[in-house]
């Protein structure tokens, strides 16, 4: 097979592989979304907690816990 054609074929295979991988990832992530976040969302609603702030709040300011710089900087979360 001439070099240009085999290069084209390889590029096509790679693009197809990417498309399949992306489709699979979308499929799996959609399943995770409905199976995991659906119940999590329901639990959030049942708990009455609004992560975006209570509608009847008197202020938008939230106090921040004082941090120990050494502990603070070690943690990723």
């Amino acid at each position: 097979m001439p070099e240009a054609e085999s290069r084209g074929l390889w590029a096509g295979l790679k693009a197809a592989g990417r498309a399949i991988a992306s489709f699979q990832a979308d499929f799996v992530l959609t399943a995770v979304y409905y199976l995991a976040l659906g119940p999590a969302s329901l639990a959030l609603k049942l708990s009455g907690r609004n992560p975006f702030g209570a509608a009847d709040a008197k202020t938008g300011w939230k106090p921040r816990e004082p941090v120990d710089p050494a502990e603070h900087l070690k943690s990723q979360g």
């Binding site: 992530l29 959609t30 979304y33 976040l37 659906g38 999590a40 969302s41 959030l44």
Partner: peptide, 12 residues
């Protein structure tokens, strides 16, 4: 989770 089920695209 708070915006379920509108956030499927954002989640992915």
């Amino acid at each position: 989770a708070a915006t379920f089920p509108k956030s499927a695209g954002l989640f992915r």
